[in-house]
């Protein structure tokens, strides 16, 4: 990916290296306060002070019980549940959409792409209304179902493009030997698209883990995930900034780590494909 480069004279090279370095430093500035304050005893909005270095803000997240641990557990439930449902349903649906290229299937794919562009935020009001009517509100399971539905169009589309890349001849050989369609999907296609499945899974997990608006509308109280808990600290008087900063850092780690692992493994090009929705 980065083999071809435009090599300019060294003055240009130094200038752009300096400019890019400056951008990098500026981009780090918002993190500065968060990271410093998380290790202070009682931090404030200011960098200085804070009463010395400590790790207790991090350890107390997991020992104190209560709200922090509970909201991590809820985030994990939503993200893992959504990821499993979405990945399984998407791979199953993507297979026929990739293999039988009839007109109907083609239009179906258009509908999927169309749905990836629709604003989920615009359907939250009626969703809230009908979740209340059917008494599905404040249920983590039904929230997972809703989040699965919103993740599916994009996940299926991506899964389909990975299955497209598996040569049909491989499967035909298996059919000759008496394998069923389901058998060839399981034994030939799935093992070959493991990287694609990972991209779909990681992308879905990161989105569900970070989602704020959907759980904010559909869940409350003890069922709230970390994003909603985090929101309750905005502009609140008497917030323990150090504790919240530690919480924010721990909550931010999974998406960052997962992305780094997956790009190492399947390459940035694939990861980008999985991220096309932004």
């Amino acid at each position: 990916m980065t083999t071809r480069r435009v090599r300019g004279p060294s003055a240009v090279r130094n200038l752009s290296t300096m400019a890019i370095s400056l951008v990098g430093v500026l981009f780090l500035v918002p993190f500065l306060w968060l990271v410093v304050v998380a290790f202070q005893r009682h931090g404030s909005l200011e960098l200085a002070g804070g009463g010395g270095f400590t790790l207790s803000n991090f350890t107390s997240l997991f020992t104190g019980g209560g709200m922090f641990l509970q909201s991590f557990e809820n985030s994990l439930f939503l993200a893992v549940g959504t990821t499993i449902f979405t990945t399984v349903i998407a791979v199953f649906a993507a297979y026929p959409l990739s293999r039988f290229g009839s007109r109907t299937q083609e239009y179906f794919v258009y509908v999927l792409v169309f749905l990836t562009g629709l604003p989920i935020i615009a359907i939250m009001i009626p969703t809230y209304d009908y979740f209340v009517t059917l008494n599905l509100i404040n249920s983590r399971f039904w929230t997972v179902c809703f989040m699965t539905a919103t993740a599916l169009p994009f996940a299926t589309w991506i899964a389909r493009s990975f299955i497209d890349a598996v040569p049909r001849e491989l499967e035909e050989a298996a059919w000759m030997d008496g394998s069923s369609r389901f058998g060839s999907l399981k034994r030939i296609v799935v093992p070959l698209i493991i990287p694609g499945i990972c991209v779909v899974a990681v992308f879905t997990f990161v989105n569900a883990w970070s989602d704020f608006f959907v759980p904010y509308i559909l869940l409350q109280g003890a069922n709230s995930p970390a994003s909603v808990t985090m929101y309750s600290f905005f502009g609140q008087y008497g917030v323990n900034y150090s504790e919240v900063a530690a919480f924010a850092i721990v909550y931010s780690l999974p998406p960052v780590l997962l992305y780094l692992i997956v790009t190492r493994w399947v390459g940035q090009g694939f990861a980008l494909r999985g991220a096309v929705k932004g």
Partner: peptide
Amino acid sequence: PEIIAAWM
């Protein structure tokens, strides 16, 4: 996560 970006 977006909410953390907002917080920072």
